[in-house]
């Protein structure tokens, strides 16, 4: 069965290209959402196997306030119902030190910087994170 991946991304073009890459190169079923409440409910109802979350989310609001991917990831990780779902941060914020900081702040399981330079490696990374977490979940 295809793994279900929830892509949280605000840029129209990036949304499209990443979805295509994951579908065509990685055999994922890609869901799209930018609405935090929808994301949380999807995660809680075990609808998704893995999340790919962008950091700058200009269209995502929670209680009327802008939220970014780090916050969404943190909320999911802090919720016992969703804390086991693997999350990968994908962002064009790729300055030195960003990776460590984002991982620490978000509690996410992986970090992939944009632009995606090597598609197989990108897909491999997603699969790896997914595998690691399912191993953990099983043990």
């Amino acid at each position: 069965m295809k793994k279900r991946l929830l892509l949280v991304e605000d840029d129209v073009m990036n949304k499209k290209v990443i979805k295509l890459i994951l579908e065509r190169k990685g055999d994922f079923e890609v869901l799209l959402s930018e609405d935090p409440l929808e994301i949380f409910s999807l995660a809680r109802s075990n609808e998704v196997d893995i999340l790919l979350v962008d950091i700058s989310l200009t269209n995502s609001f929670l209680d009327g306030k802008e939220v970014n991917g780090i916050r969404i990831s943190r909320i999911l990780k802090d919720d016992p119902l969703t804390s086991l779902i693997p999350i990968i941060i994908t962002t064009a914020h790729a300055m030195k030190g960003d990776c460590e900081r984002f991982l620490q702040e978000s509690g996410a399981d992986g970090y992939i910087s944009k632009p995606i330079e090597d598609i197989p490696r990108f897909v491999g990374k997603v699969n790896e994170v997914l595998r690691n977490s399912s191993n953990r979940g099983a043990s």
């Binding site: 840029d11 073009m13 990036n14 499209k16 290209v17 990443i18 295509l20 890459i21 065509r24 700058s56 962002t91 064009a92 914020h93 790729a94 300055m95 910087s113 944009k114 632009p115 995606i116 330079e117 598609i119």
Partner: peptide, 21 residues
């Protein structure tokens, strides 16, 4: 610089992604 980097990378990601596909 960080913002510039981010802003430039975002469309670049789309371009490279589409082209690769």
């Amino acid at each position: 610089l960080a913002n510039t980097s981010h802003e430039l990378r975002t469309p670049l990601n789309a371009i490279l992604g589409f082209l690769s596909l």
